[in-house]
Design a protein around this nucleic acid. Sequence first.
DNA 1: GTGACTGCAAACGCTTTGCAATTGA
DNA 2: TCAATTGCAAAGCGTTTGCAGTCAC
Lengths: 135, 135
Amino acid sequence: MSCFRLLKEKGYRLTPQRAIILDILHRAEKHITPEEIYEEARAKYPEVNKSTIYRTLELLGRLGLVDETDLGGDRLHYHHVEKGHHHHLICQRCGRVLDVDEKILDSLREALTRDHRFVPDMRHLGIFGHCLTCE
Amino acid sequence: MSCFRLLKEKGYRLTPQRAIILDILHRAEKHITPEEIYEEARAKYPEVNKSTIYRTLELLGRLGLVDETDLGGDRLHYHHVEKGHHHHLICQRCGRVLDVDEKILDSLREALTRDHRFVPDMRHLGIFGHCLTCE
DNA sequence: GTGACTGCAAACGCTTTGCAATTGA
DNA sequence: TCAATTGCAAAGCGTTTGCAGTCAC
């Protein structure tokens, strides 16, 4: 994995804990929380500590390997950047999370830059509301 | 204030604490945090307790008198509904917060409803990025 | 008078931190 | 070897809660 190389290039070590966390992020099918990563990591490596998860996520985020997303609520979600950017429609009635392509925001992005001289950073935006399927 | 009437109609009491908190929200020029409300309330009413702030905000939110907004970061922001809906462009370089009218999102709202059968609830959305003035 | 409300203090859940022991390079 | 990294335990921080006393109505 290219992540391993990047870690070493920057002078960081590749510990088993980091390899496991990267693997979990890599295989995840959605954005996951530190708690979910911790539970999954512990299955393979029982001694792993939650603070290692947090410290690793902080490092990976700083290196640009994972994205940190605030999907609302009390905890952050993490996501392997390799998997690309997209957005989430979160239904507040049924709890469903729909993924939408980032292109949906193109016109908004243009309008903000043109009219407000503001360049939004909208990767993995969470949009709350309700899906019509619920009604 | 019509808020006072609504409280009584629903069988809630108008305590000095609640009147002060409503007044602070009413006069606020931006979204404020429970902590900010607490500090301001304490100036007028030193015995007030932080849990009263939280309980009051929860009540006012439930009654639809204030809006609860997640502007990212660790704490929620509150806002008197009377003041209308708008959005925030938060510059991650200079910290500036720009307000934009909610109409900016009209086309996105339409696209989501049309293409994804999803009705977004985007009041007081916080959009991160950077303003061109910074560069 | 009486139930809604408050202050207080303690607990909560997620996250961060200090430190001594460990380990990858 | 030896600094980076870890596990552990404790603290931090915003928020919530149980409870006994208080106060709006």
